[in-house]
């Protein structure tokens, strides 16, 4: 099944394993950024911002917060680029990991403030934002089901399904083994299947309609 929407939005082709050429390109780009080359800074932003923003939107469930996290992430990238080691990870893997940690920091602070205010504890910070959705149409129902997944399952799904990272890259970003990543993905998809099973046929018909009409989501 083709996935045209993702290709248009993400803009970067699926990588098939890196290699020496990719490593050298990452090293050159990082060096350019470290030396303050405006072209390199723009290229890195262009290449990594969609991934950073996608992860932040998915984990935080709020577009404004995702914008803030993206800016915060790149401030750290500009400051720490000299520490990037192309032998250890691809450049976008390194940048996405910084974004992931920034999101976890925010979610932890939210949880702490909720607990200190004696608010009812929630399983997931993003779910609160997404729970405002009524679930009236296919998109809302799917979005709600994804938003209610535990954070790590949601992140695994974001990296592998929505951003086309390989299992090895996603495991590197999440700092887990590939087996653990596979388990997170399987649990996420099983939970979604169970939640959406009742209305699956109707949802699939809606999905076909949305894809067929070329509606931007």
């Amino acid at each position: 099944m083709s996935r045209p929407v993702l290709k248009v939005i993400d803009g970067s082709p699926r990588r098939t394993g890196g290699g020496e050429e990719a490593r050298a390109a990452d090293a050159r780009l990082a060096e350019g950024v470290a030396q303050g080359d405006a072209g390199a800074i723009r290229a890195l932003t262009q290449r990594c911002l969609p991934r950073v923003h996608g992860v932040a939107s998915r984990l935080l469930g709020d577009r404004d917060e995702a914008d803030d996290v993206a800016q915060e992430t790149f401030v750290k990238v500009w400051r720490k680029i000299a520490l990037y080691d192309p032998d250890k990870a691809r450049l976008e893997t390194w940048v996405t990991r910084i974004a992931m940690n920034a999101c976890y920091d925010r979610l932890r602070k939210k949880r702490e403030s909720q607990i200190s205010e004696d608010a009812p504890e929630q399983m997931d910070g993003a779910a609160s934002a997404e729970s405002r959705l009524t679930g009236e149409d296919a998109l809302s129902r799917v979005r709600l089901a994804v938003a209610e997944l535990p954070e790590r399952q949601k992140l695994a799904l974001q990296l592998c399904h929505f951003q086309d990272h390989t299992n090895i890259e996603a495991a590197q970003i999440m700092e887990v083994s590939v087996e653990a990543l596979e388990s997170l993905l399987a649990r996420a998809r099983r939970a979604l299947k169970a939640k959406l099973a009742a209305d699956r046929d109707e949802l699939i018909a809606d999905a076909a309609g949305l894809h067929g009409s070329g509606k931007e989501i």
Binding site: M1, R3, V5, L6, I9, L49, P50, H53, G54, S57, R58, R63, A66, D67, A70, A138, L139, V142, R143, V146, L157, H161, F162, R189, L192, K193, L196, R200, L203, I204, D206, A207, A208, L210, H211, E216, I217
Partner: peptide
């Protein structure tokens, strides 16, 4: 399930 998930692609920055 892939087709359903593809409904929920996040908007680009």
């Amino acid at each position: 399930l892939d087709a359903l998930l593809d409904l929920d692609v996040t908007a680009p920055p």
